[in-house]
Nucleic acid binder design. Sequence first.
DNA 1: CGAGAGTCCTGAAGGC
DNA 2: TGCCTTCAGGACTCTC
Length: 271
Amino acid sequence: MPELPEVETTRRGLLKAVRGSTITGVTVRERRLRWPVPAELPHVLEGATVRDLSRRGKYLLWHFDHGFLLSHLGMSGSLTAYRQAPAPVPHDHLDLRFESGCVVRYHDPRRFGAMLWIQGTEPRHVLLDGLGPEPLMRGFSGQALYRASRHKRVAIKNFIMDARVVVGVGNIYASESLFHAGIDPRKPAGRVSAARYDRLADAIRKTLRSAVRAGGSSLRNYVGANGEPGHFQLATMCYDRAGEPCRVCRQPIRSLRQGQRSTFFCAHCQT
DNA sequence: CGAGAGTCCTGAAGGC
DNA sequence: TGCCTTCAGGACTCTC
C-alpha cells in the first residue's frame, strides 16, 4: 500500500495530533510484525512527549527526548489518529494513547511493517544506514542516478526501486515515472544516457510531488491518517492498466514481471 | 561483489 | 457454494 507519498501523507496527517503531545499509554495487541515489537516499547514511550515526526524514505521517525520510534507501514499498514478510538478490529496491532484523548492506531493485516525503538539522541539504525537520497530534496538528480548506474546490468526499473540508489520509489511510482520519462523499464541501468537520467529524475520528482499533493494513492485499501482515501489511482498512466489503451498513443499497455513485481509500460512510448 | 530469488503474512479475486 | 491458485503498495536476507 504505502509508497513515499502515502507515508508523507500519513506523516502530515498525524503531525498536528501528535507533535508536542505526551503518550499516556501504549497497547500492543500483536508483537509479531516484520520484527518483534520490542517488549520495552510501552515502558519507554509512556510519559514521553513527541517532539517531532519526520520521514526518511518510507520510514517514519517519532522523535522523543530519549530516543526515536522507527515505524514502517510495510505493504498493508496504516496509522490513523482518532479523537475517540472505536473498538479495535482484527489487525489493529498497536495503539498510542495521548493525554489529549487522541489515539494513534497501527493497523496492518500482512504484518510486513515495523515498530522499533532507537535509544539515544541520534536516529542511528542499521535499517537507515546506506539509504540513498530523498527524491524530493537536493542531492537527488539525474546526474546522481547516472553516476550510480555505471556498469550496472540491472533493469532500470529495479535500479530505481533500490533504496540505496534513491529512497521511496515503490512499484507503482517506478512504472509511472518510467512512463513519463519515456524509458523502457527493461533497459539495463548502465546503458541509459545522462540526458535520459535527467528526464527520469524530473519524472520521479513530478510523479511523487503530484501524488503527495493528491494525498497519496488509493489503490485498493489505502487510507490516510484521517481515514480519507487518496486519489492518485485516477491518474495512473500505466500502472494496473494492462491491455488498456495508452493514454498517449492508444497502443495497449503491456505488463511483465521484474524481480517478482508487476511492471506496466507502453512499448511504443517507452524505448 | 552484483543480481536474482525466496521469504515473511493475510485477504481479495478469479477459475473451475 | 467451495476449493484452489494467484496476486497485492515492501524490503530484508539468502544463494549463486
